[in-house]
């Protein structure tokens, strides 16, 4: 398992796309929003938590098809399937690698981009915390979507259609934590629910992803 994780990480770093693309996309979305809604500081600071969350979610979505596509094309996915590692382990490691290469940089970049949107000071910690708790769920759910569409040529658009509705609860609770944090309200309830979703998804969804991947490799 460790070997697979390091391999995936090395591939992402060498190929260059892993860290860079997701982050650049996040930056672009954050830069475009003020162009779209106007430069008023008070408006921007009110929508900043939500914009950061949506930007992170889209950046995450964009990098999903890389999880399995390359391994599928060169056949290493078939090799992995015959390896002694259970399929559930493979998809979990894949999701973890995706989170380390995409989710974690997004969490770290969010406060920097928050400056561009004049995010209120008390909101910084909550944006970071909510993203840190929520992005693992995004990665795991995304791995399920990627596993569903792995055999389909040009499945990117289809995958977005399948994955986005599944992202709804995570987005709602995550953005709610950030928003309440920004307004100085208590964040306990949404934060607990967000953590609940993350843990539940991490515990259960790999089974579904593994089942789906097995079907696709038949």
């Amino acid at each position: 398992m460790k070997a697979l994780l390091t391999r995936d990480l090395m591939l992402a770093i060498r190929a260059g796309g892993g860290f860079g693309l997701g982050l650049s996309f996040f930056l672009i979305v954050t830069v475009l929003v003020p162009f779209g809604v106007g430069p008023q500081t008070e408006l921007l600071s009110r929508i900043a938590p939500g914009v950061l969350w949506i930007g992170a979610l889209l950046a995450c979505l964009l990098s999903l098809d890389r999880i399995f596509a390359l391994d599928w094309e060169d056949g290493s996915l078939d090799l992995l399937a015959t390896a002694p590692l259970p399929m559930e382990g493979i998809v979990s490691v894949k999701a973890l690698a995706h989170w380390i290469t995409t989710g974690l940089p997004l969490v770290l970049a969010a406060p920097v981009l928050g400056v561009l949107l004049s995010l209120p000071i008390p909101a910084y910690q909550w944006v970071v915390i909510s993203l840190a708790v929520g992005t693992p769920a995004l990665s795991v759910i995304g791995t399920f979507g990627a596993a569903l569409t792995v055999g389909i040529k040009r499945g990117g658009l289809l995958m977005s259609l399948l994955v986005l509705p599944l992202y709804v609860p995570t987005l709602i609770f995550g953005a709610e934590v950030a928003r309440r944090g920004a307004e100085g309200l208590t964040v306990q309830a949404p934060l607990l629910l967000l953590a609940g979703i993350s843990f539940g998804v991490i515990a259960l969804l790999p089974f579904a992803s593994a089942a789906v991947l097995r079907i696709n490799l038949r």
Partner: peptide, 22 residues
């Protein structure tokens, strides 16, 4: 694949229902 999507989707649909209420 669609059956599994339907199962997973049902769980998430219910989750979304409560999330939206919240």
């Amino acid at each position: 694949l669609t059956s599994i999507l339907c199962l997973v989707g049902s769980v998430f649909a219910i989750l979304s229902r409560y999330a939206v209420n919240f």
